[in-house]
Design a protein around this nucleic acid. Structure first.
Lengths: 218, 218
DNA sequence: CCAATAACTGACCCATCGGTCAGTAATCAA
DNA sequence: TTGATTACTGACCGATGGGTCAGTTATTGG
């Protein structure tokens, strides 16, 4: 990122190709940490190892930077999840377990953790971006989980229920965990995420199982 | 709130007693809508039917106003929930159902709906207030639900499990629903909250149910 | 080595907004 | 009615930070 201004060394380099990604990373980190309004573009620039002027060479405005973060960093991750599901062979319960844990690994433990918090927090100020996020990320991600639920019902592995609502109940604790971890968790009693996810999966699969008390494995 | 400046009428009234509550209501609405940083004190004042100067007669700073919102409007609601639980007689499952639906009525459908979103969004900028919220609201609210779970286990109504984690899984979809409704829901496919809550309760209580023969802990 | 090019800098502009306070007018006691 | 009190107003200030651009310096092609 930033280069140390050693004596006699050049003060900066031309790195046209690398700048956009570095600026996006810096912006994501700042937005997640402080929120959009409270983020200073000077800070984004500093994090990216450039000055504010350079940020404006690549993005027209602070808002354009926000949109680019979502389009370039978040949407691709959904596409990845869709591919993973298509490639999976096994029971639907196992697929659901894998999906939940993968989700936590690629969202909960990555720089993307703060995205749900950021999007819910700023939805009032940026309705266009919010709408884009709902259709291109939230609904698309729910569809991935819904597909697994339908698969399980078709195979007689899960009992029949309204997928529309079940998927919301399934996803809510995941998204909430991401929001919590990126915000208030540091002031709360620590807890183990794996166990939280397993408890949720346990309850949920139990609730979905054809015979209560038997969730298909174990 | 605001009085229309009809011709010849007086321009404003002295209403010392009513001002603080009206200002708090206005601040809550604005904070929830725009976030703390993006909220203009002129707007809060306008909503409360006063001018900015008056806000500063009752609250020392924007941040003090934020803290007052939490202390005066949110914390009392938790105390109310605690009383309700103590007064209840019936099965633990019924108590849980009542608690969940009551929670939605008094939080999800009220002006307090936006509080979880607000607190998670601003936790990075106001660590002191965040800590206060976690200990005086979040943990205390979880304790209410945890009490019901323990009650059910003691009576043999629920199977034994780790309350610490079960309560988190129980509460997450509720809090998330509040966040979602106050933010991105307006861009999403509409759905019926009652059915969402019932689906969650159904899954959760099913997961907690004592199953003949398979009653053990894990 | 020397232009020519353009990536990058950083000082600057100015609208915005938190916060202040001298003045004004509603209220009340006498 | 009138003077004293004080709740309230609104013009103002200073700091902040998004956005601009003339100038600087790394890079490249000849």
């Amino acid at each position: 990122m930033a280069q140390s201004p050693k004596s006699g060394r050049q003060r900066w380099r031309r790195r046209k190709a690398a700048r956009p990604a570095e600026i996006l990373d810096a912006a994501l980190a700042s937005f997640v940490e402080r929120g959009f309004a409270a983020t200073r573009l000077d800070e984004v620039a500093r994090r990216a190892g450039v000055t504010k002027g350079t940020v404006y060479l690549y993005y027209r405005s602070k808002q354009a930077l926000f949109r680019a973060v979502v389009e370039e960093l978040v949407v691709p991750e959904v596409a990845r999840a869709e591919r993973e599901v298509r490639a999976f062979h096994g029971t639907s319960a196992d697929l659901l377990r894998k999906l939940v844990h993968d989700w936590w690994r690629t969202v909960g433990l990555s720089r993307l953790r703060g995205i749900p918090k950021l999007m819910t927090a700023e939805s009032g100020n940026f309705p266009d971006l919010a709408r884009y996020f709902v259709t291109h990320v939230a609904q698309r991600a729910r569809r991935v989980f819904a597909g697994v639920l339908r698969r399980g019902m078709r195979d007689g592995e899960f009992r029949r229920c309204n997928v529309e609502y079940a998927v919301r109940v399934l996803v809510a604790p995941l998204v909430f965990a991401a929001i919590w971890e990126g915000s208030l968790a540091k002031f709360d009693k620590p807890y183990r995420m794996q166990r939280y996810l397993d408890t949720h999966l346990d309850m949920f699969l139990n609730g979905l199982s054809v015979v209560p008390g038997k969730d298909g494995r174990r």
